[in-house]
Amino acid sequence: MPPPGTAGRPDKPGKVANFLRRAELSPDERAALDKGVTVRRGQGYTLRVSTTPAVHRQLLGRCEPLDGTWAIPAQRKARRECENRVNALAADAER
């Protein structure tokens, strides 16, 4: 079974999804988030988003503030996980 988020659908960690829901997004980014499916994971959740790699990259770019010093460590880690999943998707698309 492939790791979560590597089968053409990088899952967004809950902390990243919450941040993105409050951000100003383009219509295609907002539509992708709205169509996402919430999956419970232990104490938290992930958001399964099915969209193009370009939109995943745009959403990842919107999460840049989560790398800042004001973000709590869990938010920074969630953003790094999201970046790894998007990069894996891009690598799979190049093959």
Rank of each mutant, 00 (worst) to 15 (best):
M1Y: 06
M1E: 04
P4G: 01
P4L: 10
G5V: 01
T6C: 04
T6P: 00
T6Y: 05
A7F: 07
A7M: 07
G8R: 09
P10W: 07
D11E: 08
G14Q: 10
G14A: 12
G14Y: 10
G14E: 06
K15W: 06
K15G: 08
V16C: 06
V16K: 02
A17I: 07
A17V: 09
N18A: 15
N18C: 13
F19V: 02
F19L: 05
L20P: 00
R21L: 14
R21T: 06
R22C: 11
A23Y: 05
A23D: 03
E24M: 13
E24W: 04
L25V: 05
S26T: 14
P27S: 12
D28P: 00
D28R: 15
E29L: 03
E29Q: 10
R30F: 02
A31D: 09
A31Y: 01
D34V: 07
D34G: 03
D34M: 15
K35V: 10
G36Q: 04
G36D: 04
V39Q: 15
V39E: 09
R40F: 04
R41P: 00
R41K: 15
G42D: 01
G42K: 10
Q43L: 14
Q43N: 13
G44W: 07
Y45S: 15
Y45T: 07
Y45K: 13
R48T: 10
T51C: 13
T52M: 10
P53H: 02
A54D: 11
A54Q: 12
A54Y: 05
V55Y: 11
V55N: 05
V55Q: 06
R57N: 09
R57H: 08
Q58Y: 04
Q58R: 15
L59V: 01
L60F: 01
G61M: 03
G61L: 08
R62A: 12
R62W: 06
C63I: 07
E64F: 08
P65R: 07
L66Q: 12
D67T: 13
G68H: 07
G68V: 05
W70L: 14
W70C: 11
W70K: 15
W70M: 13
W70N: 14
A71V: 06
I72W: 11
I72E: 13
I72L: 13
I72T: 09
A74R: 14
Q75M: 11
K77Q: 14
K77C: 09
E81F: 04
E83V: 01
R85Q: 11
N87T: 11
A88M: 03
A88H: 07
A91T: 06
A91E: 10
D92W: 11
A93D: 08
E94H: 05
E94P: 00
R95Y: 02
R95G: 11
